[in-house]
Amino acid sequence: MRKNRLCVILSALLLAAMAVVPIASAYRADDWGPNYGYANDFSNDAYNAAVQQSNMGYGAYYDSNVPASSAWSNLPSDQVFSFNGHGNSGGIVFYDNSRIYANNPSDQKSISKLTSGQINDLALAVFVNCNSGSGGSNLLSTTVNRGGDAAVGFTGEITKFQADYWTQRFWYRLNQYSTIQDAAYYAKVDTLNTYWYLGSGGIDTVTWQGPGVSNTIKPARAGS
């Protein structure tokens, strides 16, 4: 009887896992949400993004404690790339303090060093960190310049609770067939409505770039 119950529970767990990470999809989504410790755990953001992407038909993978080198090596295979955590306009920071840069001549993990065509299949990159879209050669502009169809980020400093909620609503709306720019905009509206007394926490500085911002990413697809 106990074995039978165990069997049922394991079957349910297996299927729940399948809902997040389909066994096979031609399209890959990677979601990184480092856990830096006290009040700075972004792993739920990555998980929530992966759940929605899975519903859209992507093979969605999420992780919190991987170094930048792992995310970097996967990037050319990604159709969707998302990051929630610490960073600035010039780079994103992983749990062990390693970084992927927008444009750092002395580091190989620099988006500007990607050769033409390496991320042509990237339909969307999302950088939910402070100032990811501010200044000239930032994470968004570099990603689009190297072949990404669309990139979304923020020109200001953003606070965690509002950013977490925006992330949840952004992926939810993409799963409802919103275009990338509409999902980014209306997720901002949802965040303002939810954190009305606290203010936008910088979320209203959401910005988007690239020729693909008026596209939907459902059903799952590659960049063009």
Binding site: N4, V8, S11, L15, M18, A19, N55, Q176
Partner: peptide
């Protein structure tokens, strides 16, 4: 038990195939 397992599988697949909303 077999029925339970099959029911869980069907229910999970149905849930997974619907959009979250």
């Amino acid at each position: 038990t077999k029925i339970s397992i099959i029911s869980v599988i069907i229910a999970s697949l149905v849930i997974a195939s619907f959009p979250a909303a």
